[in-house]
Amino acid sequence: MSLYYVDKFMFQVTDDEHCLARFNEDPAAVLAEYQLTPEEARALASRDLPALYRLGANGYLLLRFAHEKGGDFRQIVAAMREQAPTAAGGEA
């Protein structure tokens, strides 16, 4: 069930500037409003994309959550691949 709250959190924090501002100011307080396991809360607080992916967070929301830091999808994927080596991505 708590994956729902992981996804819901990522939706709300990327949909609402006020929520994002509160999260940046006090991540623990905002995360406490969602029913998350300690592992999920840690992964969200530190924006640990590979950990969130392993936990089963939704891919579309992960992408949106990752974009808060800027960068295109290839940088995000590269960060995830560091933790889960697969075949190379290829040229542009």
Binding site: N58, G59, I76, V77, M80, Q83, T86, G89
Partner: peptide, 10 residues
């Protein structure tokens, strides 16, 4: 297509 994971792009 894969979205939001290590296989994105494949």
């Amino acid at each position: 297509h894969w979205v939001g994971g290590p296989q994105m792009g494949q």
